[in-house]
Design a protein around this nucleic acid. Sequence first.
DNA 1: CTCTATTGCAGAAACGTTTCTGCAATCGCT
DNA 2: AGCGATTGCAGAAACGTTTCTGCAATAGAG
Lengths: 332, 332
Amino acid sequence: MSTKRKTTIRDVAAAAGVSVTTVSDALSGKGRLPEETRRRVQSEAEKLGYRPSAIALGLRERGLGLVGLCITPAGEAILTDVGYWATIVTHASQTLLSEGLAPVLLPHNVDLLSTLKVPLDGAIVVDPLEGDPVLTFFERNRVRYITIGRDLTRDNRSWLDDDNANGLLRLLQRTVPARTNVAFVTIGPLKSYVVDALNGANQWARGSDSSIRIFHAESSDRADIGHVVSSALGQGFGAIVAQHDRLALHLLSAMTERGIEAPKDVRLISVTDSPDLESASTPISAIRQRPAQLAELTARGIIEMIRGKPDIEKTLLPLEIVIRKSAPSIVG
Amino acid sequence: MSTKRKTTIRDVAAAAGVSVTTVSDALSGKGRLPEETRRRVQSEAEKLGYRPSAIALGLRERGLGLVGLCITPAGEAILTDVGYWATIVTHASQTLLSEGLAPVLLPHNVDLLSTLKVPLDGAIVVDPLEGDPVLTFFERNRVRYITIGRDLTRDNRSWLDDDNANGLLRLLQRTVPARTNVAFVTIGPLKSYVVDALNGANQWARGSDSSIRIFHAESSDRADIGHVVSSALGQGFGAIVAQHDRLALHLLSAMTERGIEAPKDVRLISVTDSPDLESASTPISAIRQRPAQLAELTARGIIEMIRGKPDIEKTLLPLEIVIRKSAPSIVG
DNA sequence: CTCTATTGCAGAAACGTTTCTGCAATCGCT
DNA sequence: AGCGATTGCAGAAACGTTTCTGCAATAGAG
């Protein structure tokens, strides 16, 4: 740690009447020193309030143990996202800190990022966008990184992700009969977890002689959502999959407004889970993500990379499915 | 930024056939160099992917622009706290980043803290506890800090805080008649905002010939809360003040269970606000905190301190009161 | 009493920059 | 042609550590 006019090792050496080597050795317990000298130096150091400069240390050791934490723009920061975000940040930070590394909060903004003069040993990027310039920035600056979620346009890098494809596949198998046409409602920029979910949905459709049709909601306005609901239901869809919990809740309330009931008239499913889905007027089935585990694993991954592990470990975290009233089980 | 085997300024110098001085000058635009040399050096640097070492820079400049962000233990991390926490972190970070400083997430744990070798230029501590060892740590390590909320046992340091005392005073004046006995319900370790609120309540009591009685809830269990409610109401209190929004909601539901209505039977007030109070079965009056402004001001404060401002600026942020059904206005 | 081993410490290099100073070489004047 | 000013660059110090190497002085062995 450091600030202000610091007392340096040289000050201590002068005060104790020895060389800097001796001070360094005395304080670190190394070298060959009689106890008496050691104690004298230590007390002198204590008296002067000497603290070794972390920066100087870092210069020698080539690194200060700083790990960047870059979360994609809160942008349309939906409220429930906060919980997800907080969980990721908290757990990644705890893991890093327990290993002596310090998390640095980074902006998801390359201009801002490049004004920073932070010696990063590595970075964690949460939910990268397609062709994310932040990743490009890290590559150009030789900062090793690992992502939670993937930039699908960029291959061959380290990432971890929830296995939403498999999760949605299983959820659909459990809750939606064969030969059902399904509407998949998305919103906002395309993130990898949505692509994954779509893959899972399509896989399910192929296996059960069904079809998936994608609707993109312009915004979460009452009107836009209502429009999606109307057009989906007008076309005889038997199930609606929402990209995330917030959207699912919007859809549910738009359905209620129109007198459409889940699951009687249409089954409603959310790709992401949240407590709000449990306490909704009609509880909504979903896939339960595991942000805490994801964050911890990611942190351990970047730690290993920093400690010299060569590269890359792509990991899909298996997920639990949560079946609620809006799309009950069709088996048994 | 930095990692791996870096190419240094010396490599560039060798490649361009000049001295390190020339490279430094060429890249920074300083010194007296003909355009041709400058370009040659620049292209060589580009070719080698040279990035100056932030650590070496920091060594010279005595600082890397790192600011610690220390949030008190999520501990009994009540869900609504997450929003507050996230707001503080987000806004403080944005302000710091916009000034070229980087926020470092710190543990609220001195043991962990001391294992870190992070050269902090300053720190922000949110909601310090009484006699908080983290603050002691920073003082011993000569890290300048500023707190949001105060450690009341420690004087003479820089802090900012919501003016909860004045806020609660005004809220009580507006919503509780004179000569009303008030129960003030607290929970968990004593934080400065609670002490402030109590001061405000007591000031109100003196001015309106009323009394304040403190109840400490052991936990937010249904039973404990119910106990507090029963004993408060059995003793003829006309108003209950809850330390925070979550507690207020617990109290409200305990009251409902017992058939006690707000504001008819007792007026209910929360010291902290949250959206949940608005949408409660009986919307609850509260003081509206301003975490975003608080965080931004605090960040600006630490920035000034880092830039050399001598010390200390104690600031109380004036607050708005939000009057809802649970304790409606008594005037007009 | 001499020769080697050990002890107690100091000097210096290295980590990667920036910047101050200095020194040739060239240029412009008279 | 001679002189000062300018240009183009290099050397070295400084930032604060750690660690490798080296060198006296002392201790121990024969």
